[in-house]
Design a protein around this nucleic acid. Structure first.
Lengths: 347, 347
DNA sequence: ACATATGTAGCAAACGGTTGCTATATATAT
DNA sequence: ATATATATAGCAACCGTTTGCTACATATGT
């Protein structure tokens, strides 16, 4: 029933040459082999449906052609784009990616890193919860290249693709102010992550710069600890935040929401409460995930180039591979505002 | 700079036992080893930061703990859910997944399958374009388990998770008719895939059953060949279809769209043309991707359980592994209608 | 006391491919 | 004719683990 997969030994026997020669032909080595011999080997390989066993090759060369990708969850649409960027870049170099959803759970993340290590990946691209620094340091010492995306790991030296969250928060708020809004609410999930604190920082910076007094009542932070970065969860969180917002009744004319997914929830809650976006309240999000343009109204938001992030991270990885050293380079991605239709101009 | 990773030899030398014993301890073999010896080995392993080299193990045992997942593109939100289902199931058994985006391109798909084969994956879960049957048959003969999802491969025997698309098309149309709609348009991307033809079949079946004459003008098929199953592309396609629909002016009061992503485009185009959904025109989609509930209005759609699909596919895979034979089982997933707010009751 | 089971450990051969080294034949240079 | 370079091929060790087989010591049964 089950054929054994052919090996170079089978081919060697069939053609009457040694496995050394067969290997050299089949691995495109630069080692010279007589044209006639080469042809005979190639032909036989084709005939037997031979495909090299990468495991054998890996063992000998002591490196895999896989790179590990650790993200919170593929279910949040921000991450698939990153993964796509990584994958495209990796594939063009013959590498594959091992996908790991950590759900930002320390244990899960740690287990995955361990597995990747055992699987001899050459590198890991990770959006980490940050608690596994020690472990990652061990890997790094053993020659595995680490690149962080989305989240930095405090006190850990490695290549990283970072995003200027502060500036992102700033330009979004600046924009609202330019449209005449002065009473601007800030709705966010818990500020447990630096990226969120940075966005908040940008918001405050903008207010300060524009001499607008920060009304503490306008800051609404969801209290529940987020279980995982799951699209539905964030959406519901948005609805919760919007309800709180309505209760507070601060007279804000605009809302800046920590991310698009949450903003969708905010908008839906407002809409269902009979409040029109943007006519009565303006909303701006953060991330610019693909569907933000498909919403009704299309969401004005801060663009965080996910695909680019993945692509760059992967490029940094390969740069390290090629130079055969840790380059510890930091690439900073700049935010930009995508103006759509969820913000109105105040007269 | 770069430490060499410790191997069982290092440990064997350190503790003064043979690699055989070390291996037995470190791989949790049932082979009896003296408690004292075991402890000494475990301790040393910990001290040296030892992690087994999976490549070596794989080579010896001749099997990897990876399974390949081939999907059109992770950027279409339907697929991440499938992938998540697969991953969760795989992880619980200690397996990892190698992610491959084929973009439904024959060559890309074929290359990926080849790579997976070389990487000695134990199984492949694939939503295939179907042209690589021959190649997959070779793999199957060599003991690699194949499970298809989403799309069947004509004439290829293997386990599959299929979805009753015909019924899906039927219940959606039934529902519209029950709400009083009799003039129902059907908007779709090219009917190159069986799943789409099936949905169309269901639509026609429902009309027939309800004695409603099928108006050819109500069938709108986008002509452009789809470049890839990309979210933005499908969205734009929806806008194009809606424009065509408006031109045709058949007086339809409801639109059945081939998938949610496309439906978003339809809704946006209608909205921007000043037509209110669902007040003036009802829309029902297909897929029930996560964001469908977040749209404005929330989309009434046919639920295709993506996460379940992935999970079941993975279970079928493991069933084959365990029984060590091809089980060629077919699991049929039933559609259900998710009623939200994009359909109005006609008086 | 002897035979038999059991506990504990090592030897060495795999797994499939790569590659440094050696060997021969042929070509080129002197 | 001799020395040197090049083309072509094989031998065998190696990558890190696993495991069938062997070996000895101890325990158990009679």
């Amino acid at each position: 029933m089950r054929n054994k997969k052919p090996t170079i030994y089978d081919i060697a026997e069939e053609v009457g040459f040694s496995t050394a020669t067969v290997s050299r032909v089949l691995s495109n080595s630069s080692y010279p082999v007589k044209e006639q011999t080469r042809n005979k080997i190639l032909e036989t390989a084709r005939k037997l449906n031979y495909e090299p066993n990468i495991i054998g090759r890996m063992l000998k060369k002591n490196e895999s052609m896989d790179i590990g990708v650790v993200i919170p969850t593929i279910s949040n649409p921000f991450y698939p784009q990153i993964v796509l960027g990584i994958e495209q870049e990796a594939r063009s170099r013959g590498y594959n990616i091992l996908l790991c959803n950590s759900f930002r759970d320390i244990i899960t993340e740690q287990k995955y890193i361990e597995t990747l290590y055992r699987k001899q990946v050459k590198g890991i691209i990770i959006s980490s919860i940050g608690e596994n620094r020690k472990y990652l340091e061990t890997l790094k010492k053993q020659g595995i290249v680490i690149v962080t995306i989305d989240q930095e790991i405090e006190g850990f030296k490695c290549s990283k693709v970072v995003f200027d969250y502060v500036k992102g928060g700033e330009i979004a708020t600046d924009y609202l102010i330019r449209q005449g809004h002065t009473n601007i609410a800030f709705l966010t999930s818990p500020l447990t992550r630096k990226s969120r604190r940075d966005v908040f920082e940008g918001y405050k910076l903008s207010l300060l710069k524009n001499n607008i007094f920060l009304n503490e009542n306008n800051i609404i932070v969801s209290n529940k600890e987020e279980e995982c970065e799951n699209a539905t969860y964030e959406f519901k969180n948005g609805r919760w935040l919007a309800r709180k917002f309505l209760e507070r009744n601060t007279g804000a004319t605009a809302i800046f929401v920590i991310n698009d997914m949450t903003a969708f929830g905010v908008i839906q809650e407002l809409t269902e409460s009979g409040i029109k976006v943007p006519d009565e309240i303006s909303v701006v999000g953060f991330d610019n995930i693909e569907i933000s343009s498909m919403l009704n109204p299309p969401l004005t938001t801060v663009n965080q180039p996910a695909y680019e992030t993945g692509k760059l991270a992967c490029q940094l990885l390969f740069e390290s591979f090629e130079r055969n050293e840790d380059i510890n380079k930091t690439v900073i991605l700049e935010p930009s505002l995508v103006i759509r239709k969820s913000v109105t101009i105040l007269n």
